[in-house]
Design a protein around this nucleic acid. Structure first.
Lengths: 147, 147
DNA sequence: GTATATGCAAAAGCTTTGCGGGTTC
DNA sequence: GAACCCGCAAAGCTTTTGCATATAC
């Protein structure tokens, strides 16, 4: 039983075949797949309706098993829920680098506490380009970019 | 001539009537209106097609005159571009608090530099709830919430 | 056995786009 | 005057939903 399946059981989420399949895809993915990415990947081995995929992702996000993120292209993307981490997006390639930093987490918490709030969750998305003194090559046309 | 109109001229963006109207609405708004909010507000004084509103917002965002942000309800929202600042979202009311903090900005820059990148832009969205030892009252049903 | 999830297909947003006519600089 | 922008309406996507059937526990 995988970590995410475990989490589901703890939350009282029934483990059905389509749910297991979605979870497996997300556990095997290192990128941040969109709904149709996930649906496409699941469909390679199992049959699953697109609508069901949406319902599963919504449910599992609500239960805290998954995390939804939206980058510059406005499509929902998913990843397994876990410790706080942040996304650095390469402006030229669209690559997503995951960043963990305790100082940042601490600073964010301190900041909102100063405003009288307690932090429940946060999303940090940094758009950057490679710092390079030599000639810079554009690796991908601007249109497809995740900004 | 307003600040944003100035910016447009600098970028070579023609100042038409619909564009001026959209800019004025955004200059007068303290919240983060969605496209249809903006369209509705503009329409109170001028006629403007919804499609045109989308085109204008896309263009002005691409030119760096406006900034697009997407919160938990997955609708595009807009604000005038300006110095880096962050959004604290009240989990219970959906209220959006703007936060500016130089330490946070500095830390983010330092972080990405450590990874070999230069920061171009960033979006920070913190979801929080009021830190309150007395009984907490839920001020808004969960469904409409901006998370 | 019961509550809950799925499949299917339709519908409901939100956003983009093609085209002819109008406007800005 | 040339380039660019707008209104309109249609089309494209993504996401949600109703209903009958199937499944997990």
């Amino acid at each position: 039983m995988s970590r995410l399946e475990d989490l589901c059981q703890q939350r009282g989420v029934k483990l059905t075949r389509p749910r297991r399949a979605v979870l497996q895809v997300l556990e095997e993915s290192n990128d941040h797949p969109t709904v149709s990415d996930i649906h496409r990947r699941v469909t390679q081995k199992h049959h699953i309706a697109l609508g069901t995929t949406y319902r599963i992702l919504n449910r599992l996000t609500a239960e805290g098993v998954l995390r939804r993120c939206v980058f510059g292209d406005d499509k929902a993307r998913y990843e397994p829920a876990g410790s706080p981490h942040y996304h650095l997006i390469d402006h030229d390639t669209g690559a997503i680098v995951e960043v963990s930093d305790d100082r940042l987490t601490a600073l964010l918490k301190q900041l909102v506490r100063g405003l009288g709030y307690r932090m429940i969750a946060c999303h940090v998305e940094i758009i950057g380009e490679i710092e390079d003194n030599s000639v810079r090559i554009r690796r991908r046309p601007r249109g497809n970019m995740v900004t």
